[in-house]
Amino acid sequence: MNAETATAEQAAPAIIRSGVRKTSFTIDPISPMIGAEVGRIDLTMPLDDDQYAALRAALLEHKLLVFRDQDITPRQHVDFAHRFGDLEIHPVFPHHPEHPELVLLGGDHTTAARENVYHTDVSWRARPSMGSVLRCVECPTVGGDTLWVNMAAAYARLPQTVRESIDGLVGVHDLLPAFGTRMTDDERTARRAAYPPVMHPVVRTHPETQERILYVNEAFTTHLANFVEKNDVRVGFDFRLAEMDILQYLFRQAAIPEYQVRLKWRPNTIAFWDNRATQHYAIQDYFPARRRMMRATIIGEVPV
Rank of each mutant, 00 (worst) to 15 (best):
V228W: 01
L241H: 12
V233D: 12
N226G: 04
Q260D: 06
T209Y: 01
L250A: 03
V261M: 10
R240L: 13
Q260T: 10
H223S: 15
I246K: 05
L250I: 07
F239N: 14
K230Q: 13
R240Y: 14
T221G: 02
D238E: 12
R262H: 03
T221W: 04
T222M: 04
F237Q: 14
W265L: 03
L263F: 11
R212G: 01
V235I: 12
I213W: 02
D232W: 03
Q260C: 03
L214R: 06
I256T: 15
F220I: 09
E211G: 01
G236H: 11
N231G: 10
L241D: 15
V202Y: 00
Y259S: 10
N217H: 01
R234F: 11
P257A: 07
E208M: 02
R252E: 15
V233K: 06
R262M: 08
W265N: 09
V216C: 11
D238H: 15
R252H: 13
E211V: 00
T209E: 00
V228F: 01
N226E: 05
L214V: 07
E229A: 10
H223P: 00
G236D: 14
V261T: 15
P207Q: 04
Q253C: 13
A225C: 03
N226S: 07
Q260L: 05
L224H: 10
M244T: 12
I246E: 08
Y249E: 14
P257R: 04
G236C: 01
V233G: 09
F237H: 14
Y249Q: 14
E243G: 11
R266P: 01
L247A: 09
L214F: 01
D232S: 08
K264F: 00
R262V: 11
P257K: 06
Y259H: 15
F239R: 15
P257V: 06
F237G: 01
G236N: 12
N231P: 11
N217A: 01
N226H: 01
F239Y: 13
T209M: 09
R234L: 13
R252K: 14
E243H: 03
I213S: 07
Q253I: 10
E208L: 06
R266Y: 03
V228L: 02
L224Q: 10
T222R: 05
A255F: 04
A254W: 06
D238R: 08
Y215A: 06
A225N: 11
R234Q: 11
D232A: 10
P257L: 07
L263S: 05
L224T: 11
G236E: 12
A255W: 00
D238V: 06
R266C: 06
R240D: 12
E208I: 02
H206L: 01
E243Y: 07
F227V: 13
F237E: 15
P207L: 02
Q210I: 01
T222H: 03
L214I: 07
K264D: 10
M244L: 11
W265R: 08
L247R: 09
E229N: 06
E211Q: 07
L241S: 12
A242W: 02
